[in-house]
Simulated scan of single mutants.
Amino acid sequence: MQEMALDELDLRLINALQIQPRVSWAALGRVLGVDPATLGRRWDRISTEGLAWVTGYAVDRLSPGAIVEVEAMPGKLLELAKALLEDPEVATVDITAGSRDLVLSVIAPTSEALYRYVLERLEKPNLVSKVYSHPIAKVLAEASQWRLRALDTMQVEALRALKPESGRMRRFNEFDEAVAEELFRNGRATANEIAASIGANQRRVRESIASQLSAGTIRLRTDVLRSESGWPVNAWYFLSLPAAHADRIARQLSRLDEIRTVLSIVGRYNIAMTVWMRTLEDVSRLEAAIEEQLPEVRIADRSVVMRTTKLVGTLLDENGRRRGYGATYLQRSATP
């Protein structure tokens, strides 16, 4: 049996950073009962090896967006997936098995720019066979809120009770944008590291970080190599259900441990969601649970993700490890 790259303490550390991405090692050491220096060394190894990472995005850039299903020309799937990595409109690229070759999460600065990308630039000559786009009407549950569940209830509550450094509310400017873009690449970058990178005063950087996090204008997320998470199976589900009940049903769906993202979409389905599961057998078990608990829901289709090559701007290798940063419109200023 292959040895796991992440052990129990690693998973607890990652779970803690999902709850408090910028928690200090001293504070986290008190919650976990582990020496802070040990936690720091472990995170250095985990992040350097691309096993887990903290990134972020601007909350006000979550829309307009679309979920786009793509069929590639025969023999061109991997070439197409690679070509899409360079498009800032494409936040996430999933290579899937099933009725579509790719599922893309697409974000653009305006609705016109979104439609222009799907209609004009996504139709790459000699690579794309078919495109089905589904504009996102509402984000009902976000993957950034999904948790590993490696901590006990008391540890989770202790982490939630930690109060990050507060910042005064003010109008944000280009300097704050520069600080944010550094956090988007590395959500645990220190004020000193960011100050050195952008050539700024460390105190001013610290104030900018505190202000933006306090205002909720940026959101940090901790991601983990799926194959080492204990939840190695990833799938997209496409659902049809009565529109009047979409919000209620989405809330019920998001309570299931496996479900990471729930989106209200417009198209041949009206709900798209991503799930992580422990085994392929859980696909049938999850579907049975949904059918039993939510009889109004019809599971129209599903696709297992074979490989993710871009995840909210982070570039992943063939094993799912972080290998770089590709950026998207979620994470930088852009004109239409």
Rank of each mutant, 00 (worst) to 15 (best):
E69H: 12
G98T: 07
E71N: 14
S105I: 05
E79I: 00
V70R: 08
L77F: 05
I95V: 15
D101F: 00
E69G: 14
R100K: 12
L77Y: 05
V90I: 15
K76Y: 04
I95G: 03
A83F: 00
L102D: 04
P64N: 13
E69L: 15
T110C: 06
E69Q: 14
V106F: 04
K76W: 00
V93N: 02
D87H: 11
P109E: 06
A108M: 06
K82I: 00
G65Y: 05
I67P: 00
L84I: 01
V106I: 13
D87G: 00
M73W: 02
I95S: 05
T110A: 11
V93I: 15
M73I: 08
L80P: 01
L85G: 01
G65T: 11
V106L: 09
L104R: 11
G98N: 12
T96D: 06
L85N: 00
I107P: 00
L85V: 07
E71R: 15
V68S: 01
A72H: 07
E69P: 01
V70I: 09
D101Q: 03
L85E: 15
A108C: 10
L84R: 04
M73F: 10
I107W: 03
I67W: 12
I67N: 03
L85D: 01
E69N: 13
K82R: 15
M73R: 15
A108T: 01
L78I: 11
T110H: 10
I67E: 10
P64W: 08
G75W: 12
I107Q: 08
T110V: 03
L77K: 15
G98R: 07
T96S: 10
T92N: 06
L104V: 07
A83N: 07
V106M: 07
E71Y: 02
L102Y: 05
L78V: 11
G98V: 09
L104D: 04
A81D: 06
T110E: 05
D87P: 00
L77A: 09
E69S: 13
I67C: 02
K76D: 08
R100M: 09
E89K: 03
V106W: 00
P88H: 11
E89P: 02
I107D: 04
V90N: 06
L104M: 12
I67T: 14
S99A: 15
V68D: 05
A66F: 06
L78D: 14
E89I: 01
V90G: 01
K82D: 13
I107L: 13
P74L: 12
G65C: 12
G98W: 04
E79V: 06
D101L: 02
E86N: 06
A97E: 14
I67L: 11
L104S: 05
L78S: 13
I107C: 05
T92W: 04
V70Y: 02
S99D: 13
L85T: 06
S105N: 13
G65N: 13
V106T: 06
V68W: 08
V68G: 02
L104W: 08
A97D: 10
D94Y: 10
P109K: 11
D94V: 04
L102I: 03
V106E: 00
I95H: 03
E71A: 10
L85F: 04
S99F: 11
T96N: 09
V103H: 11
A83E: 14
V103G: 06
V70G: 08
L85M: 10
I67A: 09
S99P: 00
E86G: 01
K82F: 04
A81W: 06
I95K: 11
A66Y: 07
V106Y: 02
A83I: 01
L78F: 13
